[in-house]
Nucleic acid binder design. Structure first.
Lengths: 174, 174
DNA sequence: ACTTGCATGTAAGTCGTTACATGATTGT
DNA sequence: ACAATCATGTAACGACTTACATGCAAGT
């Protein structure tokens, strides 16, 4: 999946590995982020496969390795974008803990859920303020949509676990 | 995370690698599932670290390698269970596609979302019938909760993307 | 006879991460 | 002077997956 995001960022212009990393951090980081230690080798591999072109230049005494997407790269990216995406696994560690909650005394269960809910609340706040900071900065509408998804998603998680906690305090069996 | 689920399954009795795999498939598979090719080496490693005991036996002419959790293993599992879980990344591939939706013509965008929604609807149905099949089979209440989460989670995704699709057909800009 | 299920394991490959290693430039 | 940011890369490791490889037992 990393190669797809790299190609995607190159769709509107040449970039260095470092620049792509910065772009990621400011946009997709809450759902997709990779390290420089994997971005550089990934670009090399894409170049080897003819999906990007590589050009070295010197700016202000610094060596810059800039990558451009090739027609084959555009093709590969478009194909990926057009083909339907499968449903991913949930991969929330907390869900696995709930699965084994019978091994934990009730008080600790409640405490854990409460903590998780506040971490989720924090995340929702962070994303909301991130969204507000981006308003009127003519950001891509779809990028904005993913941010909104992030807010809705974490709100859903928060509310679900809050309901779960309530059900535990009112009933005997969950 | 795999070692935690292995230890968790051993909490109520000795099991073979194959048995653990079958248990996973019938319970956590929609959010966590690993292959036999990683389960066997993982058990070996847990044994090396003293978290499980290993015992070989012969049953019906077949060699069986059974694993039992040690007190140290129980300790490690409990510690994991008691300590708060961080929030994971969303990791939905479709979200990354939405991020790059400006590269796709509107008709294809709509089509893609529609397809994704129907895949989600299928998943919800599958999990719902799975839940019904488990009713009154005295399944662990928390295992049931994770299944319910699965249903709620995919329903949320479905509804979110349905709303997204509606917003695209009514407005000019999403 | 044949397929499915039980049961085990290894080897190669994928897709990342963290730590290590370097060095110039810019702001305080 | 010093820290932060820009900029690149490698090495070791982690946590898996898929494919390969084997073989017996039970059901059809």
């Amino acid at each position: 999946m990393q190669d797809k995001i790299l190609l995607g960022f190159l769709m509107n212009g040449r970039k260095t590995g470092y620049e792509v990393k910065k772009l990621m951090e400011g946009s997709t980081s809450f759902f997709f982020n990779t390290s420089l230690g994997s971005i550089y080798p990934a670009f090399r591999k894409l170049e080897k496969n003819g999906l990007v072109d590589f050009e070295q230049s010197v700016e202000n005494g610094r060596v810059k390795n800039t990558y451009t997407i090739t027609p084959e790269g555009r093709q590969a990216f478009s194909e990926w974008l057009e083909n339907g995406a499968g449903i991913q696994k949930v991969k929330e560690e907390f869900l696995l803990k709930i699965f084994f909650f019978s091994e934990l005394p009730e008080e600790k269960r409640k405490h854990q859920i409460g903590e998780y809910v506040s971490r989720l609340a924090e995340r929702v706040e962070k994303l909301t303020s991130m969204k507000e900071g981006l308003q009127d900065h003519n950001v891509d509408a779809f990028m904005m949509k993913t941010l909104e998804f992030g807010i809705d998603y974490h709100s859903f998680l928060k509310e679900w676990h809050q309901r779960f906690l309530s059900s535990m305090t009112s009933e005997k069996d969950p």
